[in-house]
Design a binder for these strands. Structure first.
Length: 703
DNA sequence: CAGTGAGCGAGCTTCCGCTTGACTT
């Protein structure tokens, strides 16, 4: 480029900085000449990882440094900044985004950037919203910046004081924090409830009845005007005897119309919940795939971002998207287009920096994009597409017919649901409800019915369920603990630390997890309180909105906290010994029992005679089923570390037996090989034989 | 879809919240 032209370019040129590179690309397309767009890729300036870096005596002044690996980005940004005369800081419209803008501004000013630096805010990536924001530049909101600083400092203090406490009292390398420790608490306390629950037997009775040639089933719902009590099979027989010779007469027919409303478009939390429940994805997998859809897929004509940003707490959608989806519905489901757009009230306390998660274009139906997506991408995209389109369609209407049928003292009830207007449910396939309804014939009051047979069934009362990815995320969101960007990482962290393990999709605390929970809850009940974060948020609001002093807020917290930490450090006895789990295994070198220990690479068996005997081995999960092989099956990882586990024989390379699914203690009743745990959406968790020739599989019984 | 295969023993670790890649410490 000739020098003159470059000079020309510099004038009136503007650099706009956002957080996400994908967002930057989109905005660049919208803005065109005179603008360049760059991304910070998250935070650039933060506390160092290696030490506390907070000066307690100096009003908790944090010592900020360039985040590891981000120096290059900062350098590039300041180079770009030197070539323009106007900079627009357009990081997200929330606390963290404000802090990013603040740090960027300080940095650029230090670099003697001559350009005018302003902050702009938009909550959706549409040309109109961005142009409007550019016309209304703002100052950086120091209330928000201070609130973020307070949040950051508090989390640093909690995490970097509690973790070393655990190193000293329990084990090196452990961690605790405002968010992870409460999540652990929830899982541990739920586990207690599960353990304490005793299932009780009860029975239900169903009468199969006949009117003319039509058979249908009616459930016993009352006896002598009260809920029937059927604790065992004997009581069922007794009740049936009492009804012998009595007629079944229709007492009442009730019809009720029920409307069901579509649900709001997805937030991160709701997407993770549905994706776990409908597709069997972990939160982590959901987010990975959503990221791919967001960054863009090559659909013939080029790379297109198929969904909006996937980390959001808002159900809001842009007017542009609303207009488009209404047009789409009008063309494809004209009867189901409501006269007016449907408004979804914003979630409580949502920071609302982004739109809801929705398809970028309604017209990219799952069918249309199918051939360009992987199976998992398509399934997740379909979920998002169905939820969004349906959110702007009419209600569905169904009619429930309930027949109350008397027989002596007993009241039986049959019901049937018929969909009158499908409404929004027309677009639901993956998200369709699974309820099925029985058919009952035309009945009227006073009709006499013929009993074909009784069907009785044994049940047990169901206790509380352990948390899954779906239910822990739901709980965290309800309690305002964590943010959309952290739900999935929280679960991963608890698993990585071996505080929690996944069994049949459920989150079960380990021995270590329980020990940590007990220690923390005994000494730091206030921080472990599920309401601690919500209270912190209220105080941050005061800092942000009422300009309250953030140092005072931290001071109030710090004094008693510090005292407590010092006290526990001095007085609590170390429980390091309690960590080793006894096992049945005996050391083949010295005959002493082996214990299960947690090492750098997970659990292993070690001789209890350590340090005299240094024997160690992998934890055997099953016997090798190969005829003539006396090896054990143990967990192994591909070289390099981080890849998924597989399960092989200790006699490798003599025996190359391998399984990809986790062995269980069950043996196949058909061939004697061990059974492995598998999962699919339709069956849930089940056991399958590890022998490829043997196709045997069976359902996993509830524990 | 194939093919995958240690050792770990008090080795300095840790927080939460933004964002995406990832190369020699």
């Amino acid at each position: 480029m000739p020098k003159k032209a470059a000079e020309q370019n510099k004038k009136n040129s503007t650099l706009l900085i956002v957080e996400s590179p994908a967002k930057a690309k989109t905005i660049e397309r919208y803005l065109g000449k005179g603008y360049s767009v760059a991304a910070s890729i998250g935070h650039l300036i933060d506390l160092p990882k290696s030490r506390m870096a907070i000066d307690i005596d100096k009003d908790f002044e944090p010592e900020y440094i360039t985040v590891r690996g981000k120096a290059k980005i900062l350098k590039e940004l300041s180079q770009k900044a030197s070539k323009v005369d106007h900079i627009l800081l357009a990081s997200d419209n929330d606390r963290e985004g404000e802090a990013i803008s603040f740090h960027l501004k300080s940095f650029l000013e230090k670099k003697n950037t001559k350009a005018k630096i302003e902050r702009i805010i938009f909550n959706e990536i549409t040309p109109a919203a961005i142009r409007e924001a550019i016309l209304k530049p703002l100052e950086i909101d120091s209330g928000k910046v201070n609130a973020q600083k307070a949040r950051r400092v508090l989390d640093r203090i909690v995490g970097y004081r509690l973790s070393p406490l655990l190193w000293k009292k329990v084990k090196n390398g452990l961690s605790a924090g405002r968010v992870q420790s409460v999540a652990l608490r929830l899982i541990c306390e739920r586990e207690k409830e599960v353990e304490d629950f005793t299932p009780e037997e009860y029975w239900t009775l169903e009468a199969e009845l006949k009117k003319d040639k039509h058979h249908f089933a009616a459930q016993l719902v009352q006896y002598s005007g009260a809920k029937p009590v059927l604790p065992d099979s004997k009581s069922v027989e007794l009740l049936k005897e009492k009804l012998i010779g009595k007629d079944f007469i229709v007492r009442e027919i009730k019809k009720a119309e029920k409307k069901s409303q579509p649900r709001a478009p997805y937030t991160t939390s709701k997407l993770q919940q549905d994706s776990a429940n409908r597709l069997g994805f972990t939160s982590r997998k959901t987010m990975q795939i959503a990221q791919q859809l967001y960054e863009g897929i090559n659909i013939g004509s080029g790379r297109v971002g198929l969904i909006t940003y996937m980390r959001t707490d808002s159900t809001r959608i842009s007017i542009q998207a609303l207009t488009e989806v209404r047009q789409f519905i009008g063309e494809n489901y004209p009867d189901d287009l409501p006269a007016n757009p449907i408004n979804y009230s914003p979630a409580k306390r949502s920071q609302d920096a982004h739109e809801a998660i929705r398809p970028t274009y309604s017209s990219y139906t799952p069918d249309y994009v199918k051939e360009y997506l992987t199976k998992d991408q398509l399934r997740l995209y379909t979920l998002i597409w169905e939820r969004f389109i349906s959110s702007q369609m009419k209600n569905s209407v169904s009619e429930t017919t309930t027949a109350d049928i008397e027989c002596g003292e007993a009241l039986f009830r049959a019901s049937m649901t018929r969909v009158k207007e499908k409404g929004y449910q027309k677009v639901l396939k993956i998200l369709a409800s699974k309820e099925k309804s029985e058919k009952i014939p035309e009945l009227k009051q006073g009709d006499s019915l013929v009993l074909s047979e009784y069907k009785s069934e044994q049940h047990f009362t169901q206790g509380p369920s352990r948390f899954t990815d779906a239910s822990i995320v739901k709980m965290l969101e309800e309690k305002e603990i964590g943010r959309p960007s952290t739900y999935a990482p929280i679960i991963s962290l608890l698993l990585d630390r071996h505080y929690v393990s996944r069994k049949n999709r459920q989150l079960v605390p380990t021995q270590l997890g329980k020990i940590i929970y007990e220690l923390l809850v005994n000494s730091f009940n206030d921080i472990l309180d599920v309401n601690f974060t919500a209270e912190m948020e209220r105080k941050l609001d005061d800092v942000e909105i009422n300009n309250e002093n953030w140092v005072g807020m931290i001071q109030d917290f710090y004094k008693p906290f510090n005292k407590k930490v010092e006290h526990v450090m001095e007085t609590l006895e170390s429980i390091k010994g309690a960590l080793d789990e006894k096992t049945e295994y005996v050391c083949e070198n010295c005959g002493k029992p082996m214990v299960k220990k947690l090492g750098r690479f997970g659990y292993f068996l070690a001789c209890s005679g350590f340090p005299e005997c240094k024997n160690t081995k992998s934890v055997p999960l099953a016997e090798c089923p190969r005829p003539g092989c006396d090896g054990m099956i143990v967990a192994r990882k591909k070289q390099g570390g981080k890849s998924k586990e597989f399960y092989g024989c200790t006699n490798y390379p003599e025996c190359d037996f391998i399984s990809h699914s986790k062995p269980t203690s069950k043996k196949c009743p058909v061939c004697g090989y061990f059974m492995v745990e598998k999962y699919d959406k339709a069956r849930g968790t089940y056991y399958s034989c590890s022998n490829h020739e043997c196709k045997n599989s069976m359902e996993a019984e509830e524990e």
